[in-house]
Design a binder for these strands. Structure first.
Lengths: 311, 311
DNA sequence: GGAAACCATAGGGATAACCTAGGGTTGTGG
DNA sequence: CCACAACCCTAGGTTATCCCTATGGTTTCC
């Protein structure tokens, strides 16, 4: 089998017209280069140099081989350069998982952060929902993610909470906002809730379900939609009220439901954002970068949870 | 140092998403592939696969590397193929068909051209006449040939005209050369004509037959010989006149018939030289070389016909 | 919970890479 | 014409690499 080392020796020999000179250039002893050339000739089945008196002379086959050999070594060089630049984030792709409402806090801004620091990279923020993201994590398609917890089945995953965000009650009816909303009023409310497809796993709904179950009531929703924006718009039109993270409310209400407002729950309820990755994994620099930037973004909007504290 | 073997293992692993499957494809034991990948990761300084439960998952750096690795291996493949086809010039035999008067233009010189470039090669210039050559082409005994056209039955053959040569009237009698020779004088002349055996297919004779038939006369020849040299010698001795391609006349008259001269026909008549090979065939480098050299030789003597032009 | 799939590690044998030392051949200079 | 210098080749030994089998640790799936 042909090897890069043989091609390197071949080119050096071709250019110098001498095994000794080639060996000197490459930092080997002359017999080593000689052996490489012989091996190459053997594996190709053709003599590449005629051994004449002083020095060696390339055959026509060597003439043919030379540009190809150069192309091979150039391709190898390109490959190494590409990897090195990807390693240092000059090029390449950075992939990060991000679920649900987290994208409202850190989506576009996070991508902007990465691109401003590493203009050459491609950024992929993937994941429609926490189940998807967990599956991607387990299969190794993504290395780390920022998701909302509590979430189902986190066995085998390291979950590091980084921020919490208060869940607030939003409504277009000012009378609904005069005082904090407790379980009883929540149970009677007509609600529009997002994340229909993933309703069983949605973290906000889990919090609400628990709040209601603790007081023996059943949750009900009048409208089911997929995305938070639609829910907020419906609230703005007065069709229903909703419960969403405060950060989302502050961001979306002015834009999508200018007449609506918000009020806290009683007791206050929280959504938790956490960094998640496979247990025991050593994170790549890219993953660490994304975690750092995403955490920063989210903590600017939601309440930070410091590594030692628990909430 | 990075090696081709590592890249091969890398690609197999990337495609299968599994070291075991890659090892099986490559015919190695699994730890061997594992070792190659580890070596590659070490020499690049970057993990290429995340070891994840069942199988391995490429990192984004691996995504970056893959097309480059493919390019490298493709370049190696090209190099080997190039060498293998060039090898035939060193040790093999180059066989080329060449008919009739074409050998006067390109015979010995053509062989010399090949041998000066490829000293180790054997050269066979074969073919006594166009019928022979066509048969050899059809049977695959020769790959390509340079022949004189028009010729019979060229179905299944690609015919590429490369040059034309004027047919001139040669004579040892100066009075015969005072003006261009038309059909009437040609019909009355005592001629010596070569290529007796193949007289029906000989291109020069075909041209003359047509010229005479158009004016309602019959061709006649006084002497029939096999080769042009003998015909020219007889012309030199004054036994007869002849009609041969101008290139042959310029080459043979001074040597074989110093007292003879030549004059054009009226209207001017031409022999056509063409490269012929099986229709749709992919020509070997050896055949392409011979075509190139033969074309060059002939075009130095006869009028070139460029690919686009027709006359 | 156990079997199956898969990767990592360990250890050993074959091969290849590389070195130093010395011999043979071809130009070159006295 | 002879000696020297420049090269390449061969020989033999050491070290590193390649590749194997055997085995242990995880994860996945039934």
């Amino acid at each position: 089998m042909l090897s890069l080392h043989q091609l390197t020796c071949f080119l050096a020999t071709y250019e110098h017209g001498s095994l000794t000179a080639a060996a000197e250039e490459l930092g080997y002893a002359q017999p080593s280069v000689s052996e490489q050339i012989r091996g190459l000739e053997k594996s190709l089945g053709v003599p590449l140099f005629r051994r004449v008196g002083r020095g060696v002379v390339p055959t026509t086959v060597a003439d043919t081989l030379r540009p190809h050999a150069e192309r091979v070594l150039a391709a190898v060089d390109d490959a190494q350069r590409a990897v090195q630049s990807a390693k240092s984030f000059e090029t390449g792709t950075i992939r990060f998982g991000m679920f649900g409402t987290a994208r409202l806090y850190a989506g576009a801004g996070l991508v902007a952060d990465v691109l401003s620091r590493y203009p050459g990279v491609r950024v992929e923020l993937i994941g429609q929902n926490s189940t998807d993201v967990q599956e991607d994590l387990r299969r190794g398609r993504i290395e780390a993610a920022m998701i909302a917890v509590p979430t189902v089945g986190s066995e085998g995953l390291d979950v590091t909470p980084v921020a919490r965000d208060e869940l607030v009650y939003i409504s277009a009816d000012p009378t609904h906002l005069e005082s904090p909303v407790g379980a009883s009023r929540l149970a009677q409310a007509a609600l529009v809730m997002p994340e229909t497809t993933w309703r069983a796993d949605d973290s906000t709904r889990k919090v609400l379900r628990q709040m209601l179950l603790e007081t023996g009531r059943n949750p009900q929703t009048r409208i089911e939609v997929e995305d938070v924006e639609t829910a907020v718009e419906l609230v703005g039109m007065g069709y229903a009220d909703s419960v969403i993270p405060k950060g989302a409310a502050l961001q979306l209400l002015p834009r999508l439901a200018p007449k609506a407002g918000w009020v806290s729950m009683r007791p206050r309820q929280y959504d938790m954002f956490a960094v998640v990755h496979r247990a025991g994994a050593t994170l790549s620099p890219a993953a660490r970068l994304m975690i750092e930037l995403a955490t920063k973004r989210i903590q600017e909007i939601a309440d930070p949870i410091r590594p030692r504290g628990s909430g």
